[in-house]
Every structure is written in C-alpha cells, then in structure tokens.
Simulated scan of single mutants.
Amino acid sequence: MAKTDYIQIRRELHQIPELGFQEYKTQAYLLNYIRSLPSDRIEIKQWKTGIFVKVLGRKPVRLIGYRADIDGLPIKEETGLPFSSNHEKEMHACGHDFHMTIALGVLTNIVENPIDDDMLFVFQPAEEGPGGAEPMLKSEIMQEWKPDIIIALHVAPEYPVGTIAVKPGLLFANTSELFIDLKGKGGHAAYPHQTNDMVVAACNLVAQLQTIVSRNIDPLDSAVVTIGKITGGTVQNVIAETARLEGTMRTLSAESMTKVKDRVKALVKGIEAGYECECTIDFGSGYYQVYNEEAITAEFMNFIRSETNIELIECKEAMTGEDFGYMLKEIPGFMFWLGVNSPYGLHHSKLNPDEEALETAINMITSYLQFKGNKE
C-alpha cells in the first residue's frame, strides 16, 4: 500500500473523532478496512466499540499484541485543515488518528507477509476516558487471546520525524482525577456571620492541597496535585452555599498515589470540621503507571540502534497518563514515543502531526515484528 493511501486513511479518520465508547463511525471505518484484507489468516471479534484482530502465523509459538487507541477528545478543532473534524467540539487532538492508521498499516503488512508467531491487533476505545484498556483486558475475548507480549506507541509532537523516544522501566505516571464538592450555608453578603461560606472554604482547601507534595511525599519521589477548575456561588452579593473543585493527581509510584489520596481525605475532613460543612470526594477515573519491561524494551532499543536508521532517544519518565498501563501490568511489553514534529502539543486544538511519520512508524514496527515474531 502506498504512502498516499495511509495519509488518506489518516485524514478520513481525523474527520470523525468520537468520544469514549461512542466510536461507532470509527469502528465501522476500521472494520470496513480490515474486512477488505485477505481473510484466510484473520479472525475478527468486536468488543463494545473496539475490535480484536488475530492474524495467524506460519508456525506460532507466541501471541504478540499490538494496541492502538481509537477515541477523540471533547476539543473544538482550530487547525484550519481542509480535512478538519466534521464533529463539532470533538477532535483527534491526541494523535489517535495516527495510532489507528499506523496499526492498519502494520496489520496489512503482517497479513501480506506473515510472521511465524500469531499477532493480536487491539483497537481500543475510551483511552481518554472513562478508560477502555482495563475492561478490554478483562474481557472474555482478551482472556482467550491473551498476548505473551504487547506493545504500543504514542505520538510525541516535541520530537522530530525519524526519531523515537523510550526507556526501560517507568515511562508514564499513575494518574487520578479529583472532584470535591463542598456544601455549607449560603446567605446575604451583609450577614456573613449567619452563613458558612464555601468560597472561603474552597480557597483554603486548595491552599492545603498544595502542601501534600511538599510535605507528605518523599522529596526524591515525584507527584503533582493540580486544581484546574473552581466553581462556586451564584451572584456577587450572595455568600456561596456550594463550591466545587476539579483537578488531577499524578505520581511516579502506586504507593505515592495511595498516600496522596489518603492526605486528600484527611484535609477534606479538616475542612468539614473547620467550616461546618459537608464535603464529598470523587477520584473519578485513574490510570495505572506505564512500566516498560526492562529486557524486552532493551532488546527493542538495540534493534532500533542496529537495524534501522531511526534516531533513538532514551527519554525520562513523564507525568502523562495512559491506560495502556493496565495492559502492561499483566502482560510484559512496552510503549514508546513516536516523533511527529508539531509546534502544538498533545490535547491542543491546533495539533497537526507531520504525516511523514506514518510511513516511518509502519515500516519500523513491521521490521521489528518480523525480527521478534520470527526469532527462535
């Protein structure tokens, strides 16, 4: 298949971004393409809005997994591209259109030039939320077709085309959402002594939450507690009866995430006592750390250095989150960054990855799978 064909596929997928577990057009598009491939070596199973595709090898010993996420984000696109999103306020602002296209390209190559081992291509919904990797992993299909190793990539706007970045061990952080609702007693601004002001309580809680990292986490560890949104009150001369904090938490260890959550609970109890109010905490969805299995990742890095012209960067761990971590928790494997050279970062309304990276990734991953899947 020519490079122009993959570019066209990416552009068509870019136009139909859909939110988690709503990827109906995307699933139909992917199935239409997959079913156009020679069927003698392919088994296809649907799971919610996701897809499993098993490609039978010539003399399989293992099952090698490759995962691509398929959902978009609730972001209004501002790229001005002729193939911009057709869905208002939804966009492939995290490169999942690239991820799907690359997976289709690799799938095509493996079907046309089968390797010894079997392969499982996992087209996963809802990576951006509420999280599709963990329930997909627990599904009967994936328990039956559980890979021996699994790999995935993520586009990286900050790296040039022709580079990948990876490291053994921890790559992405543990993450958790944070929602806190406070309810006190509202009233007229002229009579504050008759009220319990939730704007004041919320502001004090935000300040206290910022002490968790500086005073409860080992200085040699890393964590982030961010409150990104505060809402409260109704009008300027009424003391607020309610307030709401929305934020995110990230840590480089599962143990630190537990400690952060425990401290949030303790501080909220203090606010309840101090401001005579009621509070509820919702940690929302959260993702387990992405931990690259050392031996498999090192083998991959050596392959890139010795068998390709791609520049390999051994990167540092990042505070980004990815639900692929749940799969790596049970299946050895790795994730790596793919350089796509964009001035705008992930989740930005103007993100436009360089399409030259598509062919680079398809050829490189195919070569690695041929090396890995044909190795005795």
Results as ranks from 00 to 15, higher is better:
residue 256 S to P: 02
residue 266 A to L: 15
residue 48 K to Q: 11
residue 231 T to V: 08
residue 224 V to Q: 09
residue 93 A to N: 14
residue 174 N to L: 00
residue 164 I to R: 14
residue 131 G to H: 04
residue 307 E to K: 15
residue 277 C to K: 10
residue 239 I to V: 13
residue 207 A to I: 12
residue 151 I to K: 10
residue 215 R to E: 00
residue 49 T to Y: 08
residue 32 N to H: 12
residue 180 I to Y: 11
residue 284 G to N: 09
residue 217 I to A: 03
residue 184 G to S: 06
residue 96 H to L: 09
residue 314 E to L: 03
residue 97 D to Y: 13
residue 159 Y to H: 15
residue 323 D to N: 05
residue 223 A to V: 10
residue 328 L to W: 00
residue 225 V to L: 14
residue 222 S to A: 12
residue 292 N to G: 05
residue 316 K to G: 07
residue 244 R to H: 09
residue 6 Y to W: 15
residue 132 G to H: 01
residue 73 L to K: 09
residue 174 N to S: 11
residue 145 W to P: 04
residue 278 E to C: 05
residue 207 A to Q: 12
residue 89 K to C: 06
residue 172 F to H: 14
residue 313 I to V: 15
residue 64 I to A: 03
residue 204 N to I: 01
residue 156 A to L: 11
residue 189 A to D: 05
residue 348 H to R: 07
residue 225 V to R: 03
residue 314 E to K: 04
residue 97 D to C: 14
residue 293 E to C: 02
residue 34 I to E: 13
residue 150 I to E: 09
residue 177 E to C: 11
residue 254 A to Q: 12
residue 181 D to W: 13
residue 275 Y to S: 03
residue 221 D to L: 13
residue 61 V to W: 10
residue 110 I to G: 05
residue 102 I to G: 00
residue 80 G to P: 11
residue 46 Q to K: 14
residue 176 S to H: 07
residue 51 I to T: 14
residue 31 L to W: 00
residue 219 P to A: 01
residue 257 M to K: 10
residue 64 I to V: 14
residue 172 F to C: 11
residue 80 G to A: 04
residue 57 G to Y: 11
residue 50 G to R: 01
residue 276 E to H: 11
residue 16 I to T: 09
residue 306 S to Q: 15
residue 8 Q to W: 04
residue 179 F to E: 14
residue 105 G to D: 13
residue 23 E to F: 01
residue 70 I to Q: 02
residue 10 R to P: 11
residue 349 S to A: 15
residue 255 E to Y: 06
residue 252 L to A: 02
residue 176 S to K: 07
residue 110 I to S: 06
residue 212 I to K: 01
residue 90 E to I: 15
residue 199 V to T: 12
residue 66 Y to P: 00
residue 244 R to K: 12
residue 198 M to F: 03
residue 365 I to R: 08
residue 82 P to R: 04
residue 184 G to Y: 07
residue 339 G to V: 14
residue 260 V to Q: 13
residue 17 P to V: 04
residue 333 G to Y: 07
residue 325 G to D: 09
residue 62 R to N: 14
residue 208 Q to V: 00
